[in-house]
Design a protein around this nucleic acid. Structure first.
Lengths: 366, 366
DNA sequence: CGCTAGCATCGAATCGATTCGATCGAAACG
DNA sequence: CGTTTCGATCGAATCGATTCGATGCTAGCG
């Protein structure tokens, strides 16, 4: 990358209207009758008395330009109020838009998941560094007509990926995070199964024999996690599917406990699919007088902070930032036309105070 | 809008590689030696034996095309694997990118604010309906070179709006939400001052005379809110600035109480700048044995759900979705070249259980 | 002093569509 | 039956840049 000259900046104070001294007709060549049109590179070239190609090279830096010429061009640009090559034209020529789409389901739900943010942040940082922008693609909109260099499918389990077909037809490179297997896409995943299996072994070591699992909506990672749990607890009870927000989790757990004989769970541990879910479970269990972890151990997934909870969750922590970086890197590779291998990142069992040994039975009678 | 034909969809299962039956050279006119290039509208026109203009009209629907011609063109497109007009070319011609940027500070902090999501959601919905995409512009990246039809500056108080100068120079329409006044931009705001003043009167009615205000980082709305409070409590104590996340609020309140004589606040009410902050304050106050609202009334701002709190916050509720819609509408208007008036939306005082009457002094001695 | 590099510059083709104005034919009208 | 009108189609210009290959000129080399 050679040094790219920046267009002259106008500080806040005079940003609106025509920049000072802009009106067309100043340099030779522009007929005076022309209405003030925003100047093009051709105008700059004419004003600087160089060819269009040279003017272009001055701005792109793709080939050396003599210092004298360069400053003549920049001076002409400044006097005309030229703010740099038109991105639309550049994009057409290059065949790139500089924009990567990311499918995010419904915005309000996607980003309320605290695990989504660090990852999105990492993706954005890597892409930004490469000069690419990140465009949100909510499910309810079709994004035909938007030029995308690549697309990321995140937020696992969405089945309503309306844009997939369009993008696939246009052969837009796609990277799928924690998604089902699709041909022609690159996958970024984490070791769901191994993580939950490790958690399950931990619970087993603590003496737990009867455990329940609080599910999310059906999805690829969800199935993997259940399989991981059943490696250790083949008969684990399924509590029910709920969204990953604290209210939904609380409601689902409430319904579950309501249905249990005597309001006491038939299990000693509850494995949740996110820390948010787990937090909801803890809150609801306590609200009913159950002690955590004495009466019920609760485990989460993700490894995000839950500051409003006064207990550290035992959880399967996933490397969110690294997942984001891997995703973005795969996008860059695919845009560059390189082959990319799928990625499966390791997770880490993180022990907290929300799980503990099974309390010895207080009474012989059930 | 006439009916726009959609490109043929390939279901998941055959999305990668060249669509079946695509190889160039099938119809007359394409020399057989050409390497398989992705087909252009010109190829389709040639295959359908119509002019380029007619082919274009078939896809854009901007002028009527006879049914016979239309189907010939579509058939040719299908057989060539043409997936519709190249968005890059269309954009250049139209002079529009179909992309609107939104400045969001740092992603992880911007979206962790629960008030940001409903608004972003509303913006996105309106823009999507207009066929526009939303592109994230974090502060740390420069988005020169990305073609934007307009830009939204949200997340008040950021001073590091690096992209502003560039966009202003390029005369990209800008809409600022709750921001400082900049020339050439459209403003969307809420009645910060009136809202907090109403809240202050409510506290006064409850008998409060000594109140404190927990600030955010300095910003335009922050100043307005403080002014609103001082309409009623000119001597309100300023507690300190902290970010709008529960942990920061908790820490700030903790430090404040630590510094207070006897660990008891010198006020009877604490006005916060967001519900998240308020939640942090409630949690910390309770942790120290203060009863809310008996010992300390706490009020928030925004009117977002705080499900993990067992008390409803008294708060100044702002119409988040409407703010988003107004913002998006302003963007659409400005893109269309229309003049737009600034908007100030009303807020609503919502009473909850976190504020209450001042308890009568339990003792004569201070 | 003649020859070869190498650098700066230029001309022209190209990216892939949209759209204005013109043309052509057929239907509707008097 | 001649003329007007309207709809469908087409040719050509245009959007605003990037880039390949060619050219001219200067400097270095033997």
């Amino acid at each position: 990358m050679a040094v790219v000259p920046r267009p002259v900046r106008t500080s806040p104070g005079t940003p609106t209207g025509t920049p000072a001294g802009t009106p067309a007709g100043s340099p030779a060549g522009t007929p005076a009758g022309t209405p003030a049109r925003t100047p093009t590179l051709a105008d700059v070239a004419a004003a600087a008395e160089v060819s269009l190609s040279t003017a272009s090279l001055t701005f792109s830096g793709n080939k050396p330009v003599s210092e004298a010429t360069r400053s003549r061009v920049l001076a002409a640009a400044a006097s005309l109020g030229y703010t740099g090559p038109n991105p639309l034209a550049r994009n057409l020529r290059r065949g790139r838009s500089g924009v990567v789409g990311i499918a995010v389901g419904r915005l309000s739900t996607a980003f309320s998941d605290p695990a989504a943010l660090p990852m999105l942040d990492a993706i954005s940082q890597v892409l930004d560094a490469a000069g690419l922008g990140l465009l949100l693609m909510p499910d309810d909109a079709d994004h035909v007509g938007l030029p995308l260099d690549a697309a990321i499918y995140d937020i696992c389990g969405r089945e309503t990926w309306g844009s997939y077909d369009e993008l696939a037809a246009r052969e837009v490179p796609m990277v799928v995070v924690e998604g089902p297997s699709w041909p022609g896409t690159t996958f970024i995943d984490i070791d769901h199964r191994g993580g939950v299996a490790a958690l399950a072994r931990h619970l087993h070591d603590l003496g737990h024999r009867r455990v329940a699992i609080l599910m999310l909506e059906a999805s690829h990672p969800q199935r993997e996690r259940e399989a991981g749990l059943r490696e250790v607890f083949p008969d684990a009870e399924v509590v029910g599917a709920c969204a990953s927000d604290i209210g939904a989790a609380q409601a689902t757990v409430a319904a579950w406990l309501d249905a249990a004989p005597g309001g006491r769970p038939g299990v000693t541990a509850l494995v949740c699919q996110s820390d948010v879910q787990a937090a909801g479970a803890v809150v609801e269990a306590r609200r009913r007088g159950l002690r955590v972890p004495d009466d019920l151990s609760v485990a989460g997934f993700d490894g995000v902070p839950t500051p409003w909870l006064d207990v550290d969750l035992t959880t399967v922590a996933q490397p969110l930032a690294e997942k984001g970086r891997a995703t973005a890197q795969a996008v860059l590779d695919r845009i560059a036309g390189a082959e990319t291998a799928d990625v499966v990142l390791p997770v880490e069992l993180r022990l907290g105070g929300s799980t503990g040994p099974v309390a010895p039975p207080t009474d012989v009678a059930g």
